[in-house]
């Protein structure tokens, strides 16, 4: 078992949550769900002041801006034993692309490698590092899980969320016909190539509506905003949530894009 896990009982690991700018601004509930899951697994969670991982700049070809943000993020989490993020996409940036960004700068590259080595996507951290096999949560309904591209292809997140979802009481998992096909979000792509992105997400929405699922889950808020926005525009009743909300038993509030009835 991993050193972090074996020490968890005596010295709770200091886990830095990289919440992602999208969750920070749009859906703090996901951040709190991540905190709950980590604390339930015996971690001490800290949230260093943070902004963005730099992926939008990196993918737009602005390497200098991406590097500046990467440096800042690496420093902010220096004192953490592990860094965990509830996003496969931001996780891919932190883990796969930070070291690549600093290729040719040995000192920063080494730092980026060390940072990448201690950084994990939330659900895979719970299962693969901490050895969590089940969660204590209840969700009555059928869900489909959309595999976000970066989590799936850059970090190998595929079985982990399904394994934990299987332990949620009352939950039935329905697979999509094409769970591994991109939803068409692609960050700035969705705005820059709106019409094209719309065609791709329409295909995804059709796949979801053809399934038995009443709720679609994913590990990335970017994909989810795109998918939820398309389902809602199309008048579908299928709801969208981050997988952490369901795993943490915090899926009783409004789903993505739904009004908060109590407070509005």
């Amino acid at each position: 078992m991993n050193a972090i896990a074996s020490e968890a009982s005596s010295h709770p690991p200091r886990v830095g949550l990289f919440v992602t700018c999208l969750i920070d601004v749009m859906r703090p509930t996901v951040g709190f769900a991540a905190v709950k899951l980590l604390e339930d697994a015996g971690c001490r969670v800290v949230v260093p002041a943070q902004t963005c991982c730099g992926q939008p700049a990196f993918n737009a070809g602005d390497r200098a801006a991406a590097k500046a943000l990467a440096r800042r993020t690496i420093e902010a989490f220096e004192a953490c034993d592990a860094v965990v993020t509830p996003s496969g996409s931001c996780g891919g940036m932190l883990i796969r692309h930070y070291p690549e960004l600093f290729a040719g700068e040995p000192e920063m590259a080494a730092k980026a490698e060390r940072f990448a080595a201690k950084t994990h996507e939330l659900v895979s951290f719970l299962t693969d590092v901490l050895g969590v096999e089940r969660v204590t949560a209840r969700f009555d309904g059928t869900v489909a899980y959309h595999d976000g591209c970066s989590g799936l292809r850059e970090l190998g997140v595929k079985a982990q969320p399904r394994r934990l979802l299987a332990s949620v009481e009352g939950l039935t998992l329905a697979e999509l016909a094409e769970p591994e096909t991109c939803c068409g979000f692609g960050g700035l792509f969705a705005a820059k190539y709106g019409e094209l992105s719309n065609t791709i997400v329409s295909h995804k929405a059709d796949d979801i509506r053809a399934s038995a699922a009443g709720t679609v889950l994913a590990g990335d808020l970017g994909c989810l905003l795109n998918i939820a926005g398309k389902l809602q525009r199309a008048g579908s009743a299928v709801r969208a949530r981050h997988v952490a909300e369901v795993l943490a038993g915090m899926a009783d509030g409004p789903a993505i894009g739904e009004p908060n009835k109590e407070r509005s």
Binding site: V19, I23, D24, V25, M26, R27, P28, T29, G31, F32, V47, A49, Q50, G194, E195, S197, N198, V201, L225, N226, A228, G229, K230, Q232, R233, I256, G257, N260
Partner: peptide, 14 residues
């Protein structure tokens, strides 16, 4: 133009 945009929940996580 093509899909709805969810409103934020309110104040930020941080």
């Amino acid at each position: 133009r093509y899909r709805d945009l969810a409103a934020p929940e309110g104040s930020t996580f941080q």
